[in-house]
Design a protein around this nucleic acid. Structure first.
Lengths: 339, 339
DNA sequence: GCGGAGTCCTCCAACGTTGTAATGTGACAA
DNA sequence: TTGTCACATTACAACGTTGGAGGACTCCGC
């Protein structure tokens, strides 16, 4: 079948363990022996069997990334960033989609699948604070992403939701806009991206002495383009006036922009628009979309690093850590200054 | 540590092999024994160790999907479809990004990574026909996707590129358009999406008795939004007249649309536009984009099926198969009939 | 009550690797 | 000469599972 250590050992005239030692850079090996072994490895084209190594060591070299949906640009880009970060650590990534379904999100933590994996990056969308206890039952190292659960029992890497939304809103205010609509609220939600970002929006209004007007705040179920479009339709029908829009993600911003354009509104002339996430697409729409870059690369890099640390030190108890990535305001055409 | 078959065996008062037999649905087990074992499994919360099983059986239950870039919507959606299809077969998917870099595309076939995986779905973008021999050296079951290599030594699942482009072009002609520009050509390319789709374009012109005009055909390097935008800028600058655009993928179509709109052209009134791929986004742009649905789900489903068959029958020689997914014309606003 | 044909279950040996402990080999000091 | 020590290598047993061979038991017909 395939070449094993035994074959290499036989060819090099040493024991199988010596081959293992050479491969694992054991200190005490005569240079000559080492050379003979590496030559044999070369000649036979030997590759260590990762499954066997995994069985022996209990590691697989694979981590899983659980996300709601890869078709969502934000998560596709996050996955991309995670894969690059994992690659740098010599890890492979299995992606699992939960479809933002609570049952499935919980199920993915328990299933057999978990066995294939040294650790989990867990980006839940349907889970709530009350579900935090579930994370206790997971024996696999786990790093939580997103903003559904705070101060849970695991490491947590997320973004400056409130501050980002505040900066976005402040940016519109600085342009002179006073009637700023929100697309993507979840009324009553305290945490979660929607809750946190709404707080930031209110803070920015407060800072500028602008009164909060509930009629300007549009709820959206799923944060897709269609939701943004639908919310904007309702806003327009309601007759409430506005000259700025803060959308809680870019997809909704784009959906809303489409509806406004259909209705004959000019962006940014009549309405300035800003999104959140800095997905690639925002660079190419008409107009290009101003947005908040939440620091995806940093999130991925730190999350993988946390996970690797936990994987490398199985026994050790590490206090749950929290990391908030730096964000940045990205100014594009949709919030350009108009004459 | 964790619970093994030994624990279950001890609790159920049977041998470890009997536990294995129960789990693997071996025929001859007394119902009573089976019950005792399953009860023990239940009680202990036993899960088979997949690594050990993998070592014994030589299977890992993981396949890898090699694609250029997850940030590209087409590949993200393809990955999504593949993961669903794999899930249905109880397989996990490791995604590897090649960045459309030839070296890396080749390297990914050789690396240690391959060991973690029962089979490979291989969507190359930089490889050429001359590289087909590389596929011979791969001992892992492999199914090729895309259109860089035809009649290679492996199964191949792809789409009706030529027919799709022909239908797209014919659709514009049916609308009365006669000066139809192309965005995304690669001059001199015979196969590859660009080459095949250009053939379809020409066929449709031929069918309608329209003469091919080289000035209408815009080359694009990478098939991104920016490329489509750039190509359209050049087309407009060149002064050549056109009333229709066939873009060889949706991203380029959107980039081109953006430039046309900036230039004051109305879509579909002045120029009708059709893309290729049916990425989700096309449903939400302004105007919504007509396109060719290449049958991503079918591609994913068939590719996984082919791969699973090869994995299940290691010794057997199966003649390389070719599968072309059915495509569909999706009519949206960008090719609506105008008064 | 014995042979034979099931049926049910167990024992042993793998799969390919690595950790542990032990063994072998010189060199050098006592 | 012997003991000690550092280095270099090896034997063996795991990791948790499954395939194969075979053993024990039951049931049947004669």
């Amino acid at each position: 079948m395939s070449i094993t250590m035994h074959d290499v050992a036989r060819l090099a005239g040493v024991s199988i363990k010596t081959v293992s030692n050479v491969i694992n850079d054991y200190q005490h090996i005569r240079p000559e022996t080492r050379e003979r072994v590496t030559a044999a490895i070369e000649e036979l084209g030997y590759r260590p069997n990762l499954t066997a190594r995994g069985l022996r060591s209990g590691r697989t070299g694979v981590i899983s990334l659980i996300i709601p949906d890869l078709r969502n640009a934000y998560f596709a880009e996050l996955a991309d960033a995670v894969m690059r970060a994992a690659d740098a650590q010599g890890l492979s990534v299995i992606i699992e989609q939960s479809g933002a379904d609570r049952e499935r999100e919980i199920g993915l933590l328990g299933g057999e699948r978990k066995q294939k994996v040294d650790g989990i990056l867990y980006s839940a969308l349907a889970l709530g604070e009350d579900d935090a206890y579930i994370l206790n039952d997971v024996d696999t190292p786990l790093v939580l992403l997103g903003e559904r659960i705070f101060h849970g029992p695991t490491d947590h890497v997320t973004m400056h939701n409130t501050e980002g939304a505040r900066a976005a809103t402040a940016h519109l205010i600085a342009l002179g806009r006073r009637r700023i609509a929100v697309v993507g609220a979840h009324r009553g939600e305290v945490i979660g991206s929607a809750g946190l970002r709404l707080v930031g929006y209110k803070q920015a209004l407060d800072d500028a002495g602008i009164e909060y007007d509930d009629r300007l705040v549009a709820e959206v179920g799923g944060w897709f383009r269609s939701g943004g479009a639908q919310a904007m339709r309702l806003l327009l029908e309601s007759g409430v006036e506005f000259d700025g829009v803060v959308a809680f993600n870019d997809s909704m911003a784009l959906g809303a922009m489409r509806v406004m354009q259909e209705a004959g509104l000019r962006i940014p002339h009549d309405v300035a628009v800003i999104g959140y996430d800095d997905i690639d697409e925002t660079r190419y729409t008409l107009p290009t979309l101003s947005t908040i870059d939440p620091g995806k690369d940093e999130i991925a890099e730190v999350a993988v690093r946390f996970l690797v640390e936990r994987i490398a030190n199985p026994g050790t108890v590490i206090e749950p850590r929290e990391h908030l990535a730096a964000f940045a305001l990205v100014e594009r055409e949709s919030t350009a200054v108009v004459a």
